[in-house]
């Protein structure tokens, strides 16, 4: 029985999920981290406080993140940019995937009880980053693959 699997389908999914992160930057662009219309990063953080599934998490966002919004907004923006570019290009994929996994879990925990959110979205997102990490998905059609062959 052939228990081996090809990497290419996962390698095709990698840049698509990279684009997901890059598109998500549209509503948290510096300097104000707000889109022209609709909800911005601050609004989402306030929703996480108002509908916290885990009181400790809501307290952390309220007491630590919101008072230092600019610092955390830059951290979130740069982290999402890094994950997006890493997955899009397949460069340092395992690091990007690990960072993305943490961010997906953070989103899932923070938005679990926010009305209108579908928790399975974040389960899928977290799982994909786990898959990219385990399979080292930048080996196929990625900068990681080119670097290892050079």
């Amino acid at each position: 029985m052939n228990a081996q699997g090809p990497l290419w389908p996962i390698a095709v999914a990698r840049p698509i999920i990279g684009l997901l992160w890059l598109f998500s930057l549209r509503w948290k662009l510096p300097p104000d981290f707000m889109p022209a219309d609709g909800r911005g990063l601050m609004d989402w953080l306030q929703l996480e406080v108002a509908h916290a599934a885990f009181p400790l998490y809501g307290l952390f966002v309220e007491q630590v993140v919101l008072p230092n919004f600019t610092l955390f907004a830059w951290l979130i923006f740069l982290a999402e940019l890094a994950v997006g570019l890493s997955l899009l290009t397949g460069a340092f994929t395992r690091i990007g995937a690990l960072l993305g996994l943490g961010m997906a879990l953070n989103l899932g925990i923070g938005l679990l009880e926010v009305p209108g959110e579908w928790p399975w979205s974040y389960v899928m997102l977290a799982m994909w980053h786990g898959v990219f990490f385990v399979t080292d998905a930048g080996r196929a059609w990625g900068v990681d693959g080119m670097r290892s062959r050079a």
Binding site: A3, G5, P6, L7, I10, M127, V131, V134, T135
Partner: peptide
């Protein structure tokens, strides 16, 4: 070989 088996197991988790 182990990496390739891991690929299919990752797909199984999906």
């Amino acid at each position: 070989g182990q990496a390739e088996v891991r690929l299919r197991q990752a797909a199984a988790i999906l």
